[in-house]
Design a protein around this nucleic acid. Structure first.
Lengths: 205, 205
DNA sequence: GGGTACCGACTGGTCGGTCGGTTGTTCGAC
DNA sequence: GTCGAACAACCGACCGACCAGTCGGTACCC
């Protein structure tokens, strides 16, 4: 009788989880394979059995990370019906109590600094951004169709909102003493409204 | 007769320049002292003579970097009289031809990913952000005094504008194919106007 | 007995830091 | 005026720590 869940699946998620935790806590540059072995409860040989190289493991870990964050975002967004509320539903990003979100920042920063010099990493980043854009764009189109927002280049606006989220998040996370959760939410709302309700905005990019 | 410029000053800037170029091109994690030696034209011994450790050298390089960028921003901003124009004067950030700005992105990304796990780095980041905030806040206060913007918490708004700049810049740099210069400028303008002209914005944070 | 899953000692390469040495310059003693 | 001591500026071979990847083994199952 085969096991209900593939052992391989268990091990791989176990390893990726350990990798993400370790990367988040120590930063990519300071993570050794031995660290991940310790965190995952496997030996070096065991690790190598599932991931042939450090690079392969890291790429898998980051991919897993982006999938998780995106799933979380989509899930939260789907809870709202109002387009504007959908677009502002990512306040869990600015919640230090939130385990998913908070652990993610160090991972994201590490990822981006690597992506600068690495084509394959950059590709993952692009895909991730594109996923967000599709999601946000749907909400914007919905708002336009309902007459809440005026006509606009919805994709550009979606990219803008996504970028603004990240900019605010960066400050909020790296300098929390000076940037409160309230500041983050307030700034986000006004900036997003600036994109959606600006009177002189044209449809062209 | 002593030399007109201190030799030490020449060497130190020579080394820091080499370090920044190398970091920008290869990424912190891939930079060795030998790389910087090669780039600066000094030997390992010569390097060590001026900077006792890799960490000390890197901290000095990053500090130098932040000073340069800030000086550049201030200089550009001072050219304008109109407060709104001042606040939108950083379009050189979104110019791939600009040597200062463009080389800076990889450096900034590297810096932030280290700052996550390093108190001393984080301190430098905080100071840098604070400098920007002071600068932007002055322009906002000016606008409020002239009656162009309504009353608001000028510091919060300054922090918001600064964060938005960075968010847009991040996307523009890391995924240039999907985020044109025009998109960056357009998004920036609307988001900033959202902060400055929002009707329901209160003075409290 | 062959295959899957895993172990952990070992190795080879890399890199930050060290250190003995060299060159050139200044300056006081004679 | 010159000798040499002291020092600043710099060189580059070397060392030792660290670490990714390897590989011969083991245990268990079919």
């Amino acid at each position: 009788m085969p096991p209900i869940i593939e052992l391989e699946t268990i091990r791989r998620t176990q390893i990726l989880e350990a990798a993400l935790q370790t990367i988040s806590a120590q930063g990519c540059a300071n993570v050794t394979l031995d660290d991940i072995c310790r965190a995952s409860g496997l030996s070096k040989g065991g690790l190598t059995y599932y991931y042939k190289s450090k690079r392969e493991l890291f790429l898998a870990a980051f991919t897993e990370f982006f999938e998780r964050i995106f799933a979380r975002g989509k899930e939260t967004m789907d809870r709202f019906d109002d387009p504007l509320e959908k677009l502002l539903s990512f306040d869990w990003l600015y919640n230090p109590e939130d385990p998913d979100g908070f652990i993610g920042y160090p991972v994201l920063f590490d990822f981006m600094s690597i992506a600068v010099h690495d084509e394959e990493y950059r590709k993952i980043f692009h895909d991730w951004v594109d996923n967000w854009v599709v999601l946000l764009k749907e909400a914007i189109v919905l708002g336009v169709n309902r007459g809440m927002f005026h006509e606009m280049d919805c994709e550009s606006a979606a990219r803008g909102i996504s970028a603004i989220y990240q900019g605010i998040a960066t400050r909020w996370f790296l300098a929390p003493g000076m940037h409160s959760r309230l500041w983050a939410l307030d700034t986000l709302e006004n900036a997003v409204k600036g994109l959606l309700f600006s009177s002189d905005r044209e449809a062209g990019r």
